[in-house]
Amino acid sequence: MNILLMILSAIISLVTGMFFLGLARKIMAMIHWRYGPPIYQPLIDVIRYFHQRAVSHGFIFDLGIIISLIGSLLVVFFLPLGNISSFSNSGGLLVILYILILSPLGLALSSGESANPNASIGISRKLILTLSYEFVLIIILLSLMSQYQTISLQEIVMLQARKVWSFASWKLILPGIAYLLILPAMLGFRPFEIAGASQEISAGPSVEFGGKYLALNTINHGLLHFITIALFVNLFLGGGDLFGIFDSISGTFWGSFVSLIIFLIKMILIFVISVFINAVFPRLRLEQATKYILYYPLSIAIVGLIIVVAIN
């Protein structure tokens, strides 16, 4: 049963991730008053990459990108998708925080071996940006974990379904806002498209990726979109819950199905908002981005944590 759930969640995340990539391009095109590519265009790209004859710079160049994808897929299993959760009971949010490291680290190792300065600059920017938003993310997660007194993501989702969504409770609204503010940075969207700046440093870490490496990288990119937004929906928007309307069928097959659909709809909503932000902003410099993150979202998050701690 668990293995079936794992396969199911892997498929859902892969498909949704690719769909997100296509959706982003389509929405961007529409904002530009263009017709835009078909929504399955990223899939065509991936198939094309996959059939190209790639260059490799060594063993770690291959291994790193595989580690990166393993890391992303592994996180998916720890996320409850609606009522589907493969093993959310194996260490909880702390494990998620740690496995989230695997993906950028694998990418960093892989592109590091390509010996391209553009890649190194991209990685350096990516790690600094990640460090700065991780300040905020950690505080957000800590305030949630302190509020709900658990480190299990599954339980946080269930407690929200029982009481009220974190985003709607006045104690946790500030962490929620902080998460929304760093969401573009986590997705790598403009104004924080600093690491993979394609015009400036030739796509940064993925500069030497072509062929199947780029295929894996694109899939990974989609998965990262999926994970970041799924984490937000789980933490703040109650996962697959919709004001308890479908409580009566929970536990059945249709209950899981409905909760999954609700979960995906919430994710799409959040994603579309991020794409809108992406469409209207130019790219910031790294210093500006770090400064922004360490000023506004961080102070909001700290106030939120203080409120949570003071009340408990």
């Binding site: 095109a29 263009r34 590519p37 265009q41 094309r48 796509a203």
Partner: peptide, 22 residues
């Protein structure tokens, strides 16, 4: 590639570097 003729309809986009282009 922009609004007037929109090459992306046909899947044509500028690639950041030759490794990713065909």
């Amino acid at each position: 590639i922009t609004t007037r003729w929109d090459a992306e309809r046909f899947g044509i986009i500028p690639a950041p570097n030759p490794r990713q282009a065909n």
